[in-house]
């Protein structure tokens, strides 16, 4: 077989194939639920109900989507420039550590000064965590996929060390967790009584900002050019390494905001399980969004909905929660295939 470009893909093709990919994902999930001895349709219903069925559930989904928007944006920005940042998990924890260091009383400023300071410092820390692999790539030609992956393990162990040492809460009864943030360092709730904090608002604003950078600025143009063909971009006079480093700063900073938002908005302190793989899930979010920053918001809501829904489904129907991860893996693989097939036709050779 060989692939042949489709000159003018029809709208049916452009929408039908991704829809088919999602349908296949749902069918596979239903079959797996049946193997687990549950009614497939009730399982799907329970997932939807668990994610969006009540005000509480919907807010939970928005809360879960918040860090995924940040990490999804981080991955989308980097992948667009073909900088393979698999280290959003590490960058998230860097942001979380800085938030705890500055937010537990080291700076006793009013909230309007303290919160932006912490956010910027967190972004810088995340940026540094990605600058190291990016520098190794531009300077020594070391593949950043492996280095960012390996750094995830290093940073997580470092955080574990801090939580048992320098950052350990003296009142924590021996648990490896940090002290709680002071009130001025907490992100306020968007509305009184609603369990949704301004981290979500910040995530939406970030998505808009990234969209503007990508569509309306020279940097965005250069990032796309480097991603499409680094050699051609170099030939056209674009400083490829400088663009990659700027991309890394932006991407690492965005991922770190996920850590800032989780600590300052949701949790109030730092523990080792603050991220159940938000950095890795960000890759799925970004891919499902086709690396479009505004699409990231939609994809993050979808992915968060599956996770939150699967949690409540698992309690009700006794199907293991890992069903959520399986669904996302299939959605990812089938979606990249479907998108490719909108542009290419399979021909027998």
């Amino acid at each position: 077989m060989r692939l042949e470009p489709v000159a003018n893909p029809t709208l049916t093709r452009q929408l039908g194939l991704p829809a088919l990919a999602l349908l296949c994902t749902v069918v596979i999930a239903s079959l797996l639920a049946m193997i687990a001895g549950a009614q497939p349709f009730s399982v799907l219903g329970l997932i939807v109900k668990g994610a969006f069925g009540s005000k509480f559930a919907a807010l939970e989904t928005l809360n879960r989507a918040t860090p995924l928007i940040f990490t999804g944006l981080a991955v989308a920005v980097a992948f667009r420039a073909q900088l393979w940042n698999i280290g959003a998990e590490a960058q998230l924890y860097m942001g979380a550590v800085v938030t705890v260091v500055l937010g537990t009383g080291a700076l006793s400023w009013p909230a309007f000064a303290l919160l932006p300071t912490i956010a910027i410092a967190a972004m810088l820390a995340g940026a540094v965590a990605l600058l190291v692999p990016t520098f190794l790539k531009t300077r020594f030609g070391v593949d950043e996929v492996v280095t960012t992956l390996l750094l995830n393990f290093v940073v997580l162990l470092w955080v574990s060390m801090l939580l048992e040492g320098a950052l350990k809460d003296p009142m924590g009864l021996g648990w490896p967790k940090s002290a709680r943030l002071i009130a001025e360092a907490r992100l306020p709730r968007i509305m009184d009584g609603l369990r949704l904090h301004w981290g979500f608002g910040l995530a939406l604003i970030s998505a808009l900002v990234v969209w503007v950078i990508q569509r309306r600025t020279t940097l965005g143009y250069e990032m796309r050019a480097v991603g499409l063909n680094a050699e051609a971009a170099r030939f056209a006079g674009i400083p490829v390494n400088a663009v990659l480093i700027k991309t890394a700063l932006l991407s690492g900073g965005l991922a770190a905001l996920a850590g800032f938002s989780e600590v300052a908005g949701l949790k109030g302190n730092l523990t080792l399980d603050i991220s159940p793989g938000f950095g890795y899930t960000g890759i799925i979010v970004a891919m499902l969004a086709l690396l479009n920053p505004l699409g990231v918001v939609v994809a993050a809501l979808f992915v968060a909905g599956i996770f939150v829904g699967a949690d409540s489904m698992s309690r009700a129907a006794g199907v293991p929660t890992y069903l959520a991860d399986i669904m996302l893996a299939f959605a990812l693989l089938l979606m990249v295939l479907a998108i490719m097939l909108t542009k290419f036709r399979v021909r027998r050779s």
């Binding site: 293991p320 890992y322 399986i326 990812l332």
Partner: peptide, 18 residues
């Protein structure tokens, strides 16, 4: 190959745990 590989890792791991 990056995206598919990471997808396979997620799929294989979660199917196994399931």
């Amino acid at each position: 190959q990056h995206v598919v590989g990471l997808g396979i890792t997620l799929l294989a791991t979660s199917l196994t745990y399931y």
